[in-house]
Structures are given as C-alpha cells and as structure tokens.
Design a protein around this nucleic acid. Structure first.
Lengths: 147, 147
DNA sequence: TGTAAACCCGACAAAAACGATCGGGATTCT
DNA sequence: AGAATCCCGATCGTTTTTGTCGGGTTTACA
C-alpha cells in the first residue's frame, strides 16, 4: 500500500499555495522551488482545479490559488482529487467479478468497508491549516477494554 | 490509493485458512473454491509463509496452515506480508531524493508520519478472528471538541 | 493592437508495477 | 517407486505511473 507521486506532489503543491494564501495567483514558475517536474505539476494542478480545490487566473500575471480557505480543505479531498477514491476492493464501491466463492457472505467485505470508512474519516479530519500548524492529534485509542 | 490483488487474495487465503483452522494442512487445490488463479495463489502463500504467518507441510497430504492462532494474526501483518510496509512518502521510512525544497522543515513530513502511524495502528487492531466474527468496532471518534 | 506571460489540453512514450503463467526441482507419504 | 504436494526462478503481457512535448487560448500591458 503506497501513495503515488501524484498524491505526494499534489499535497506539496497545496501546501505551497496555502503558505502563499492571500498573496494572489502563483504562477507555475513560482512552484519551481518545490523542485518538481514542471510540466507534470501543471497536469496535477489541472486535476486539483477540476476537483474545485484550486482556481486559476489565465493570462499574464495569472496563476493558481486556493479556491477555499485552508481550514476547509481536507487531505482526503486532495488525495481523492489526485488518485481517485480510496478502494480496497472493487466489490465495496462497484460491481466486481465474483469476489470470492462465498459471494453471499464474503467475510472480507466487512473489512474493506470498515477500513474504507475509518481511513476516509481519518483523512477527512486533517485540513490544510492543520498541516501548516502541524496540528495532528493522535486519535484517542480503542475506546475501552474488549474484555 | 488502492490495494492490489495481492493484498486482497492474501487476505482471502488467510480467512480460508482461519475457517479450516485445526483441520490440518490445506492443499493448494483445497483453495480452489476461492476461484483464484492457482499458480498465482501459490506465490502469494509463499510470501505469507516467509512472513511467518502460515506454515507448510510438504509431500503427500501436505498443505498450508496458520502458524498462529487467528486472534494473534492482524490485518496489518497480512497486508505487510503481501505488499510491503505502508509508505506514503519514502522520506518517512528511508532516504529520498530531496523531498521538497524546504527540506529542513518539510511540513508534509509530519502528515506522512501521522497517517502512517494511525493507519498502521488501525490495521494492527484487526485480527483474523475479528474478521470471522465480524467484530469491527468503529473508533470512538475525535476525543473532544477542538474548541 | 501586438506581444509576451501565463494557463490549457491532448497525444505520446519510457519505465515500473501488476498479475499472472510455466517448467522443473525438492519432499514426503504410502 | 510413484504420486501428491510444495518450492522457486524465469518469463511475459498488460496496466499504471510518471512524465514530455507541441500547440492552442486567454489576458495584462505597453
């Protein structure tokens, strides 16, 4: 289980924009200090724009900027914009080839649903401004003894 | 972010073994009812064996069996055996090419570490026997108001 | 009004990862 | 000895990833 560079670069770009938030559009060249392949980054910013997370201004003096306040943009949205929704098994979100022979009562399905839900919730709790402020609280762990 | 079929098939295989736990070694053919490509599954069971999660008996009447009790085998171990450790960015676990130009104070690094820790903890809490019993409790969410 | 600075977009391509398949070797039960 | 098994490395086609490229469009500004 890994994150592709798409998700990684995308988050870097969003952090960059969050830091410059309020300073007007940032041109692609301004992202240069991130040391990412420029033409590739341009593509990724396109995905972020189509997902509604960044806005663009075209023409001279144009560039990219956050389309919302940093406290209203979550890691989940960013990663989903770059990599599509989290999916452990297709049978959870879409139709699959017979997932396993116990089709009806596939015991793994519950696991995929549980994990998908928990991880999406986790990612959805972290905002861009949390990242800038390094405000990452560990979850108060397992609620009580299983006994 | 997705899970490859390796992780998926691997978990299916482990669930299969857990259900037959105590019934002696299960031959590759016995897994047939899972409808997975047999030769591929054989490879995957090799990984699970090398990770210490299953044991094998060779020769006639041989096969695969869990090398521990189902309550002592976690989803994290299984997925790590099949797909390697969870990694969001290489800079968290290993050396990376300059991660981003703000090398020293890369604000994304904290995110990767946080996510890696939380998700590993989540995966580590689910055991094979939890899966059989469908015992998947949602985490008691964010501890208290952020205020 | 012209031109340069930007973003926009689709096509293409190399490289890596994925999802297997295959053939033969090593064990072990009977 | 022979059959049932697991073991292992090589190979291979497909898909995904990670880019590159070329040309088009928009717009500020002189």
């Amino acid at each position: 289980m890994r994150l592709s560079t798409k998700g990684k670069y995308g988050l870097y770009a969003m952090i960059f924009l969050a830091r410059r938030h309020g300073e007007g559009p940032q041109s692609l060249k301004a992202f240069g200090e991130l040391n990412l392949p420029e033409a590739y980054l341009e593509q990724l910013l396109g995905s972020l724009r189509r997902a509604g997370l960044v806005s663009t201004v075209r023409g001279t003096q144009g560039g990219y900027l956050l389309s919302r306040e940093p406290e209203n943009i979550t890691v989940r949205e960013m990663l989903e914009a770059m990599e599509g929704p989290l999916r452990f098994a297709d049978c959870v979100t879409e139709s699959d080839r017979p997932p396993c022979a116990h089709s009806g009562d596939c015991p793994a399905r519950g696991v995929w649903e549980y994990l998908t839900g928990e991880i999406n919730a986790l990612l959805g709790r972290i905002t861009l401004s949390d990242i800038l402020r390094q405000n990452l609280r560990p979850i108060e762990n397992v609620t009580e003894e299983t006994k």
